[in-house]
Amino acid sequence: MDAAQQGLVAAEAQVRVAEAQIADVQLNLRRTEVVSPVAGIVSQRNAQIGAIASAAGQPMFVIIRDGLVELQADVSESDLLKLELGQTVALRPVGLSDTLRGTVRLIEPTVDAQTRLGRVRISLEEPGRVRAGLFAEAEILVEEREGLTLPVSAVAAPAEGRGETVLRVTGDGVVERVAVTTGIRDGGTVEILDGLGAGDRVVARAGAFVRPGDRINPIPAETADLASN
């Protein structure tokens, strides 16, 4: 009887050892499964059949989370401080004729020491219309308001102790120099905060050939553009 009991105990011990070995094998097998932590689109695969996975190497897969593509934009350090989260962005991807819309999602806290550029991440309203890796130009709207604007060519730079000025044309065609205060510059236009009123006529071009006191016959800019075409 004792021998039988000892044999039973030994057999049960062997069963437990076998079960532990099976559990260890199953654990190792589960560790071979690669499960994505999020849903998305696989944009890059570095894994190869038979290769050994390592945390120190390249990622096995690169996944676009939820299929959302965003723009990584490089911004000069002089403009970086004007940006805020949520600002509206107009994007023109290469190969796309129309403009896409987006918003500033993230402003990275550091500036590259070599290029002096900061990085901004912009989320897109229609991410399905672009592909990862495309180049795009972006315009970030940092401020918007209604006001009086002029072509940049109409504003003379500060000189000889005076600030910025424009050449205004009076009702009888006489040119006079007027000091102005400028605001936002956007491409070829500049905002006029003070010094002019709506309806004032100014010399938009060829200001170097006109002097205060000259009497001229101004041509509206629209007419001049049509004549040049």
Score class of each variant (00 low, 15 high):
1 M>Q: 15
3 A>C: 04
4 A>N: 07
5 Q>K: 11
6 Q>A: 14
7 G>R: 03
9 V>Q: 13
11 A>F: 04
13 A>P: 08
16 R>Y: 04
16 R>E: 14
17 V>K: 08
18 A>E: 14
22 I>C: 12
25 V>L: 15
37 P>R: 02
40 G>C: 10
42 V>I: 09
42 V>C: 08
44 Q>Y: 09
45 R>K: 05
46 N>F: 07
48 Q>K: 13
48 Q>V: 10
50 G>T: 05
57 G>P: 02
58 Q>N: 05
60 M>G: 13
65 R>L: 02
71 L>E: 05
82 K>T: 10
86 G>E: 13
87 Q>W: 09
95 G>A: 10
96 L>I: 14
97 S>Q: 15
99 T>A: 05
103 T>G: 14
106 L>A: 13
111 V>A: 02
113 A>R: 06
115 T>A: 04
116 R>P: 04
119 R>L: 12
119 R>S: 02
124 L>T: 01
127 P>G: 03
138 A>H: 00
144 E>M: 06
144 E>W: 03
146 E>D: 10
152 V>A: 13
154 A>G: 04
155 V>F: 07
156 A>I: 10
166 V>N: 04
168 R>K: 11
172 D>H: 00
180 V>L: 14
186 D>I: 08
202 V>H: 00
203 V>I: 11
205 R>L: 15
207 G>C: 01
211 R>W: 11
211 R>H: 10
212 P>C: 00
219 I>W: 12
219 I>F: 07
222 E>P: 07
224 A>I: 07
225 D>Y: 10
227 A>G: 04
